[in-house]
């Protein structure tokens, strides 16, 4: 499947607005199944990350976006039709009792695994929601369970800088700061590692790419 023609246009516009500088630190863009996981501060994030990838990798890469926000009307058109996004329900941990929550979580993981098939890469934001840009929130468990299901995929941490300044939570007028997207060295997954350790390590890998 080739990328939607509008995707290139929107990606170009997002890159222009964000003036984004892309750096690969200790990793190279590779045409293999990859999970790019990044900090999340702005609605621009997934478009900018997607457009920071080399063109040949973009059409193989699907952003994962929150269903409650992206499902309606025009947003859905952009996310699903143009960027081929996978919409997932946001994990509200604790809600509806432990069993209900974990059943929903495992449905979400199945949905992601299905969406990846054996050729698609994913862009995910393991914080689960947009932060202020000052601190990276603790990662939700989804990344861990996804890796258990797909142990062969490459894990690439990404830090996105200044996008919160360009378009912070709750604003719709952008200010043209210069953004930066840093791709870090691929991270190994070890099924024997405890979940909390893995998630902390993944978060550290993202934070270590921060420039300032």
């Amino acid at each position: 499947m080739s990328a939607h023609p509008l995707a290139g246009v929107i990606a170009g516009a997002a890159r222009f607005v964000s003036g984004v500088q892309v750096v690969w630190l200790g990793s190279r863009p590779q045409a293999r199944q990859t999970v790019y996981f990044a900090n999340h501060t702005s609605h621009l994030d997934f478009v900018v990350l997607w457009s920071s990838l080399p063109e040949n990798l973009r059409e193989q890469t699907r952003p994962v976006a929150a269903q409650d926000y992206w499902e309606s009307g025009l947003r859905r058109k952009v996310a699903v039709d143009v960027f081929n996004a996978l919409l997932v329900p946001r994990g509200r941990e604790g809600a509806g009792g432990q069993n209900g929550a974990s059943a929903r979580a495992s449905e979400t993981i199945d949905h992601l695994v299905l969406g990846m098939g054996d050729c698609y890469s994913l862009i995910i934001f393991p914080e689960g929601t947009r932060g202020t840009g000052e601190e990276v929130a603790p990662f939700k468990s989804g990344l861990y369970y996804l890796c258990r299901q797909k142990p062969g995929v490459q894990l690439v941490p990404v830090y996105m800088e200044n996008l919160n300044r360009i378009l912070p939570k709750g604003e719709f007028l952008p200010v043209p700061f210069i953004g930066r997207v840093a791709f870090g060295p691929p991270m190994a997954f070890d099924a024997a590692e405890p979940k909390a350790d893995f998630l902390a390590r993944a978060r550290d890998a993202v934070c270590s790419l921060r420039q300032s």
Binding site: G19, R165, V175, P176, F177, I178
Partner: peptide, 10 residues
């Protein structure tokens, strides 16, 4: 000017 201001503010 626009680009310079953007570099400065960043």
């Amino acid at each position: 000017s626009f680009l310079a201001l953007r570099e400065y503010i960043t």
